[in-house]
Design a binder for these strands. Sequence first.
DNA 1: GTCTATAGTTTGATAGAC
DNA 2: GTCTATCAAACTATAGAC
Lengths: 205, 205
Amino acid sequence: MLGTPNRNRIAERREATRREILDAAWEVAREQGLSQITLRDVAARVGMQAPSLYSHFASKNAIYDAMFAQAWTECQETILAAEERLAAEGGASKPRAALRVQARTFFDFAVSDLARHQLMNQRTIPGFEPTPEAYAPAVDTLESFKKRLRALGVRRQQDADLCVALIGGLIDAQLANDPGGSRWARLVDRAVDMLANDLGLPQDS
Amino acid sequence: MLGTPNRNRIAERREATRREILDAAWEVAREQGLSQITLRDVAARVGMQAPSLYSHFASKNAIYDAMFAQAWTECQETILAAEERLAAEGGASKPRAALRVQARTFFDFAVSDLARHQLMNQRTIPGFEPTPEAYAPAVDTLESFKKRLRALGVRRQQDADLCVALIGGLIDAQLANDPGGSRWARLVDRAVDMLANDLGLPQDS
DNA sequence: GTCTATAGTTTGATAGAC
DNA sequence: GTCTATCAAACTATAGAC
């Protein structure tokens, strides 16, 4: 009986092909711009003809949708990893250091890939709206952030909103006005401290 | 001799037609999205056929270019008017009130028109880059803002950068997560105060 | 300056053979 | 599941009559 193992192998192969297609789509997005992705271009990079993509994705927007989910999932994993690193160093009890790591990690993640940032945080593709399933990891990431804020004693909705706006503003300014540079990257720590003062967080001991 | 008056009338009529075309383009941008502007659509709204637009603009990007310059010019005029209003009320000597008016005016201007904000502050149209002439009013607006900061004793480049990022972040968060609402609009005054504290501005007397 | 006609491209998506 | 062939639609831009 080799029915089950075969099904697994086939499913794995399918999944691998999907990932190859998404990788190619990210490549195009980074080189040509997010909205400049074409099925022909993506297909060529995985050695296919454009119509073959429809065996793996129902439409072009379905590709954007998978990319959206992928980006937010990866973002959450990156933040989680940074958090665990901080905990291992014993710095998790320092509230300002904890906030600084959150901000820095998210900032670096966003700034390192303009196309990805546009897909995640701006509504730049006409007619594309993420499906609820693709949106879920984005909601999770924000909820995790708010939970961490609560652990620091920051409970009000508007406090979290202010954090989100400030870090997001630094990201957008960096990408728009000094891409590849560090003019706003340098301000992240200062911004977090300003925020921590406003939130009444104690100094780290 | 009616050569000169005729030339004036003709030039005025041309200018009026250009403005009608731009108005129509803004209309399309607000209804369908900035990148969804088509020459057919714009032309139809001014009662023309698409090719006729080429008598007034050299290309589609030339229309975006004129819109870009128009938006920033209007923005600067709006801020200037708000500033003069504050001066008339005798509040110009209060540094925090002055900063608050700047921030609030720019915030309201940006949030009131998503398409305009995208054109002014995001690079969302593939292949469009404003010409130096269209970019000039944007530079002027930023320079004026920095001059006003200097008048308040704020001189470092990074201080202005932080202001720009914070207000920009509030705008983007408002437009992206609560369009038409006021969840981040409510935070503008608080954000300015937080900033003023960080910059060491004295309390208004 | 505006029109009609159309060139010239590009694109997402479908049909059907293999 | 991938291919070839092709559709149907949309768009910017140009040519040339009026």
